[in-house]
Amino acid sequence: MDADLRISLHAWMVLTRTFDDAMVSMWKQGRGLGGTFSQRGHEAISVGAGMALGPDDVVAPMHRDLGTYLVRGMSPERIFSNLLGKATGPSRGRDANLHGMGDLGLGIIGYISHIPQALPTTLGAAMAFRYRGERRVAMTFVGDGGTCSGGFHETLNMAALYRAPFVLVIENNQYAYSTPLHQQMAVSDLAARAASYGVAAERVDGNDVEAVYRAVSAAVERARNGEGPSAIEAVTMRMLGHAIHDGAEYVPAELLEEWAAKDPIERHRNVLLEDGVVDTVDLEKMREVAQQRIAEAIAEAEKAPYPDPATVTEGVYA
């Protein structure tokens, strides 16, 4: 893999983590609005998969995919504005936290809470590309929990049936809210669920950004070449609560320790250093740039205006 790409993957993960850490501390200080979701531990998935897409492709991220929004070019100030209910967020104060952050100009379909609505919708985007004969790909994400919903199964069946240019990233982070994997399903291989419908499926280490990037890139290429849909199960761990209010006391401490040792950013940093792609000065600089960038974004979002209540009914219809 080319050195610039490796550095870029790393820089996006650092920016994502920096955003996340800053967001969590804002909410702890009472400077947040409503709830929000930390994606800590998911950086390799959202960045690795997001970077595998081309500029004309479309993605529907879910609530742990902050990195994908950033990689697609949604600015940190716009995202913070959405989190704070400001007029300058992509949903203009209409939708909460990481929901509703759609921007078709950036190839992003906004998230809806209802699991797994993103799946059939993204399949539809892929089918529109196929219909018009465009070499474009549509990608979305689903949690382990979401693989238990009927819509997951309906979507994968149709995706395979129609050989759609569709890519699904399954984020197996061991939990759906408080419910561990073994209380959600009698199987443990989520890639196999997808494979059973005739979708090309594989499992990757979700804390290895380069592995995620390679697997998703291959899937995107297959889709682009008319070779049908793929599902990539990326195995990771949700490192904080389901949402900001959740202390996740139900997660065994040993499990978190085990996964903390596999932190995707720390791991990639060590690999880059070992391979001589960067030195510690470069990394320190990268961290400072990210911190500066996020501090500016927060300042801008905090001083941005709230939407004017006189506009409350605007936008219901196209």
Binding site: L33, G85, G93, R94, D95, T311, V312, T313, V316
Partner: peptide, 9 residues
Amino acid sequence: IPIPFSPPL
């Protein structure tokens, strides 16, 4: 309308 998030809305 769908129920908006932002406090003034």
